[in-house]
């Protein structure tokens, strides 16, 4: 059976389609902050996140009479937010059609930067800080692969960038993140051995 929150959301959507603005408010209260987080993974700028997330609700209201949601409301709104973020990037031409194969060597400077940003409390925090510290396009491509589960080909199509460039960016992101993690764990031979067993490799 469906859980209670889902039943409530069904009722909100029914009320919304009938033009009830208080239903929009309830949906907004539950989903707005989550959408900010979703968009932030793609565009790390809080003002833009607010702007785009609010537009998602304006659109939900505009389409209230013909809404046809087959997934959970959360999945529907998230997809709408991600699409909006990608369209925004396209429209603002922030994604130069850079087809050149980028130098994959990681500069010392960015390593240091990541290490400084890294929180010492936990590896996970360090890794999350390292994601934020990735170069812009690198972070975007990694986010779309890791969080939005898009294939390299889909990312290439959505961003209008060659698959080769996408793959280079993914490789670069993985290398930078690994360095951040390694630096954080301060991998001594003993730790390396432990890691090997811990991660079952």
């Amino acid at each position: 059976m469906q859980s209670d929150p889902e039943i409530a959301e069904q009722q909100w959507l029914t009320a919304l389609s009938a033009g009830d603005e208080s239903a929009l408010r309830r949906i907004f209260d539950r989903h707005y902050a989550l959408l900010l987080g979703d968009i932030y993974r793609i565009i790390p700028d809080e003002n833009t996140c607010q702007d785009l997330a609010q537009e998602v609700f304006v659109e939900l209201w505009r389409k209230r009479a013909e809404l046809d949601i087959h997934t959970s409301l959360r999945a529907y709104l998230r997809r709408a937010a991600v699409n909006r973020a990608l369209n925004h990037l396209k429209a603002s031409r922030r994604l130069a059609l850079d087809e050149s194969v980028e130098q994959l060597h990681v500069a010392d400077e960015s390593e240091r930067e990541i290490a400084e940003k890294a929180d010492r409390d936990s590896m996970e925090k360090a890794l999350h800080a390292a994601i934020d510290a990735l170069p812009e396009k690198c972070r975007l491509v990694f986010s779309l692969s890791r969080f939005e589960h898009l294939s390299h080909r889909e990312i290439s199509e959505k961003l209008g960038i060659s698959v080769k460039t996408i793959e280079n960016q993914i490789t670069k992101a993985m290398k930078l993140l690994r360095q951040a993690l390694a630096r954080h764990a301060d991998l001594s031979p003993v730790v390396i051995l432990a890691l090997k067993y811990w991660w079952g490799m």
């Binding site: 979703d38 890791r146 993985m174 090997k196 490799m201």
Partner: peptide, 14 residues
């Protein structure tokens, strides 16, 4: 193993 850790731990990033 390190790559696996990166991929998995990144999953909780929000």
């Amino acid at each position: 193993a390190q790559m696996k850790a990166v991929w998995e731990q990144a999953g909780s990033y929000q």
